[in-house]
């Protein structure tokens, strides 16, 4: 495992921790899109079906279980916890996320590495992950005040994606037969979706003003 991959996994882990911190200690999910969180829960459930079929490493298994468990518990908290759910911006979080799932499924049926159930689900999870952040970005744009933890959460997620792109470049040049078009294209699309947010985040950081996205 190279440094970019490890750093990518760690920023992903931190992003989840930041979100759990917000939910557990502040008992708030204000500014967090339940739609995006539901999509992530589906992404990890469909991608990590290979937990039952393939053993890669202890690290791999533990990380998969963490991402599965945390994404499902975040959805549970936002929907059912009696305090946390009251802070959910339901009226602002109106992105029709289920409409993203059908095109991703069709694409996965058409473009996959092998036409088997696990491979189609794996491709589906990659396509869906690429667009899963959209409801969150729309919600950020609508929310007047973006609090620090929410901003950091999205920043860490974006950093995780960018580091994965560096990891692929590194692996391409150092490993033989390392070519994965499906992962790369959907991963690059996903990273580009963060570009706009990055721009405004660093502007606000540089000028030392509160993060606000233009309407």
């Amino acid at each position: 495992m190279n440094i970019f991959r490890l750093a990518g996994d760690m920023t992903h882990l931190f992003s989840v921790l930041v979100l759990l911190l917000k939910i557990h200690t502040i008992k708030s999910c204000a500014g967090i899109s339940l739609k995006t969180q539901e999509l992530y829960a589906i992404v990890f459930t469909t991608r990590y079906l290979d937990l039952f079929t393939t053993y890669i490493s202890l690290y791999n298994t533990i990380m998969k279980l963490i991402f599965l468990g945390s994404s499902i518990s975040i959805v549970w908290y936002m929907r059912h916890h009696k305090v946390v759910r009251r802070s959910y911006d339901k009226d602002q979080d109106t992105f029709r996320h289920y409409l993203l799932m059908l095109p991703c499924l069709l694409l996965a049926l058409l473009i996959n590495e092998k036409f088997t159930f696990l491979e189609v689900m794996w491709a589906f999870s990659l396509y869906l992950e690429a667009v899963a952040i959209l409801p969150q970005l729309v919600l950020l744009q609508r929310t007047r005040n973006i609090d620090n933890l929410t901003g950091q959460y999205v920043l860490l997620l974006g950093a995780y994606r960018a580091l994965y792109v560096l990891n692929w470049i590194y692996r391409y040049f150092t490993e033989e037969n390392y070519v994965h078009w499906i992962t790369w294209v959907s991963g690059i699309v996903q990273t580009l979706l963060y570009a706009d947010f990055f721009y405004y985040y660093f502007q606000s950081w540089k000028n030392n003003v509160k993060l606000q996205l233009p309407a």
Binding site: R5, D50, F67, N167, N177, Y178, T183
Partner: peptide, 10 residues
Amino acid sequence: PKDQAAKDEL
């Protein structure tokens, strides 16, 4: 094997 390589990522 080729199939395995992508699956070692999260």
